[in-house]
Design a protein around this nucleic acid. Structure first.
Length: 523
DNA sequence: ATAGGGTTAG
């Protein structure tokens, strides 16, 4: 359900390639980034293989190497290996590197909750920087020493940043120190103006657990960006309060819709089902259109199409949202043919499709390999006076591409009235990768750089394609491009391709919320 | 290069 790109996975063959590289080309500035990528891959243990070998070649490593190796220990909770690395650091004379010292502090409390070793290193620092302070504060807080964490924050002699505030506010939540928490919140408002979801979530959690439900709600509504954690924090509040026993604040339709959208966005089927049975027990199997649609959406997002259709059939009044949700849901869950059948039923029932309905239909065709039908549906859009938007074009390119009709896909892009953006180009590249058309891949890859709306996922696709062809220089070059671009732009979001309910490129949960409220009010 | 938020529950 979440949209985070999956961590890369390295094959044995790729690992062998890297190991060969250590012998043939032992340069830290090439090997360290690879080590880092391995550390952050789905199997961080592999980093130790490479690290061990790097350490045997005096030319292959430098002080950067140790920070990555320590991060691998932290992620895998490998205490013994970390001690060994600590010893190597001393042996190599790098113990006075602040980056390594900070990594060691982090390592000791994460792997063993070993605050004493962590503090021993921290106390030896002549000039602890903001990272050292933040690491020690978050360490104390995570071990339950909230008071001590707050005291450390008060003792800081360098300017805290957002990360520091996150750690200290979380300590305030743990301790239940209302006064201090509010003070930190005030400080963050005065000093950090750019919005930071993580900081806002930490503040939200503080008010949800220690303030009033109203204050948390107020904050939540005003957040410029909400992610899964924001929703979870709020659900936590609702669930703790309990639906049934709360005499004063009974959930209304809006509450139920909100909680159900929260369940949808994190795929919390169990919670969603309990909300459903709560609704049944209270309203006797009758649901309003608003809540009904939210229920359908929840079941769709959790992959329970049977339940989604059951609720859909029960709905007395079905509107365009109900129909489109089920159609997109069928498409998303691999029932392309059924999606088209339901569309016919919708037309027979005199419900007029809109642009979102068509995005669902086209994605049904692309995932179901139904090129002819897709083309017909695309043409049918004009009958309903709907001008194709970029997401419709992306579906078409994806449809041709998946079916192996690469020339048609490329020609389709050429004839588009608007410029091909990241998702459109990404769909084509993905098709080239699937069908192994290297020449077309190269041709279109060039156009990605400096194009707007290209998600890092698209670049990762390019890089991984090279990596799986053992073209490491090319893969690294793309990775470098990703890094340099990150400074300039926020990562795009390819949500559209996966979830046909969203009309525009926006942050996932925001889009949910806006659609639900905007469109439900129209009715 | 290193540090940051939420978590179902008998």
């Amino acid at each position: 359900m979440t949209l985070k790109p999956p961590k890369p996975t390295f094959t044995i063959r790729q690992l062998n390639q890297i190991q060969a590289l250590i012998i043939t080309n032992p340069q830290p500035h090439i090997l360290n980034p690879l080590l880092k990528t391995l550390t952050q891959s789905s199997n961080p243990q592999n980093a130790f293989l490479i690290y061990n070998q790097m350490l045997h070649h005096p030319l292959a490593y430098n002080h950067y190497t140790f920070t990555h190796a320590l991060q691998a220990c932290t992620l895998t909770h490998t205490h013994q290996k970390g001690l060994e690395i600590h010893a190597s650091v001393i042996k190599c004379g790098h113990l006075h590197d602040l980056f390594i010292q900070n990594s060691l502090i982090h390592f000791y409390y994460v792997t063993r909750n070993d605050i004493f070793s962590a503090h021993k290193i921290f106390d030896s620092l002549l000039y602890p920087d903001v990272v050292s302070w933040t690491t020690i504060i978050s360490g104390l807080s995570k071990c339950g020493f909230f008071r001590e964490a707050i005291d450390m924050f008060a003792a800081m002699n360098v300017k805290p940043n957002c990360n520091t505030l996150v750690s200290v506010i979380s300590a305030c939540s743990g301790l239940g120190s209302l006064k201090f928490g509010k003070a930190i919140h005030g400080y963050s408002l005065r000093n950090f103006h750019e919005d930071n979801v993580i900081l806002e979530n930490a503040v939200l959690d503080f008010y949800a657990r220690r303030g009033s439900p109203e204050s948390a709600r107020h904050l939540f509504v005003k957040m410029p960006k909400r992610d899964v954690v924001s929703w979870t924090t709020m659900i936590g509040g609702y669930v703790q309060r309990g639906f049934c026993e709360e005499a004063e604040t009974e959930p209304n339709d809006a509450t139920l819709v909100n909680v159900l959208s929260a369940c949808s966005s994190i795929g919390a089927l169990n919670l969603g089902q309990s909300v459903h049975s709560y609704i049944n027990s209270r309203y006797g199997f009758w649901v309003s259109k608003l809540v009904g649609n939210a229920l359908i959406n929840m079941y769709v997002k959790c992959g329970e199409m049977g339940m989604a259709i059951q609720v859909f059939n029960m709905l007395q009044v079905k509107d365009i949202i109900s129909w489109s949700t089920v159609i997109s849901g069928l498409a998303m869950n691999g029932y392309g043919k059924q999606a088209l059948q339901l569309f016919s039923l919708m037309i027979v029932n005199w419900v007029c499709p809109d642009d979102i309905t068509f995005t669902g239909l086209l994605s049904a065709c692309s995932h179901g390999g139904m090129v002819d039908q897709g083309l017909m549906i695309f043409k049918a859009m004009s009958v309903y006076k709907i001008v194709p938007q970029i997401q419709h074009y992306a579906c078409m390119v994806d449809m041709y591409g998946r079916a192996g009709q690469l020339e048609e896909a490329e020609a389709f892009i050429r004839e588009m009235p608007c410029e091909a953006d990241g998702p459109v180009r990404g769909a084509l590249l993905n098709a080239c990768r699937i069908h192994g058309n290297e020449r077309m891949f190269e041709r279109n890859k060039q156009k990605l750089i400096y194009m707007k709306g290209v998600s890092t996922g698209t670049f990762a696709l390019v890089s991984n394609t090279y990596a799986s062809a053992d073209r490491w220089e090319d893969a690294n070059k793309v990775r470098k491009d990703i890094r340099s671009m990150r400074l300039k732009k926020k990562a795009g979001c390819s949500w559209i391709e996966m979830n046909t309910l969203v009309p525009e490129e926006k942050s996932e949960n925001r889009a949910f919320q806006e659609i639900d409220s905007k469109r439900l009010h129209e009715i």
